[in-house]
Amino acid sequence: MGGANFWAILGSRLLQGLLVVFLVVSIVFLVSRGARDPVEYLTTDETTEEEKQLLREQLGLSGPLAEQYGRFLLDAVQLDLGNSFISDRPAMDEVAGRSVKTLQLGLAALIFSLVLGLPLGIIAALRRASPTDWFARLLAVLGQATPNFWLGLMLIFFFSVQLGWLPTGGSGSFKHIILPTVTLGLLSCAAAMRLTRSGMIDVMGTDFVRTARAKGLRESTIISRHALRHALLPVATILGIQVGRLIAGSVIVEQVFAWPGVGRLMLHTITVGDFPVLLAGILVISAAIVIANILVDLSYPIIDPRIRAGAR
């Protein structure tokens, strides 16, 4: 694999990603501005037409849609998405503060899902039909089928209301993040577990594992040096999709647990019609998903030397 090749691929992926982010933000811009006058959200029936017009000019909502869109794009290129209609602070600042919170929750959920999912998948595969295997498979099926908002409420019901161990919502301490993490991470955990298990089962039946056994290697060496690397490939493949899912899931989980992240901010901004902040949030979210996918794609050759990025 030539170094130049790698950079060329990275460049083209980044360009594609940029295009996707641009399109996503444009779609949201046009839907939010085109369908209804944003001023309608901010005013009451008693507001006079002069006042509305004044407000439009203050907020940069005057002129035809194409002109607004052009102005928006020029500013957006410089990462200036205007000021919040409500607080008048720069929209990007509003989102930046909340992004950290969502990042915390997302990372915690990802770590939770891998720390629980991978070992469980490995053990389940090595001891098929054992109680661990049954537990793992039950967890996988349930994790896939349980709606996350309901799971969140159930956890609040048991651990906060009945037992009083953990807070019902909000953020601030380590205790606050436990329930949202479990709620958000369970689906990813189930997916990671299932893929690890099936990957391990496949790989333990291959010739190279038999060869490793025949050489008299210890079972732990076979698993850690030969089998695991192979079995984790499908897990890496879905990691990119999982990041998107975690971000999408965080919208609901943040709402259930009153976690002050971007998702909750987005729900709020949409209902009050604070479109600059909405667009800033959408920009950050879509960029995060796109970057995560590029990173996962680029990491394949590292995990699996057989795949050369150039061959794709």
């Binding site: 999408a248 919208v251 909405l278 879509s286 996918n293």
Partner: peptide, 14 residues
């Protein structure tokens, strides 16, 4: 790609 980068819930709310 666009779909994967735009959470359905947010778009639905919009």
């Amino acid at each position: 790609d666009i779909q994967l980068a735009l959470p359905a819930i947010l778009f639905a709310l919009l």
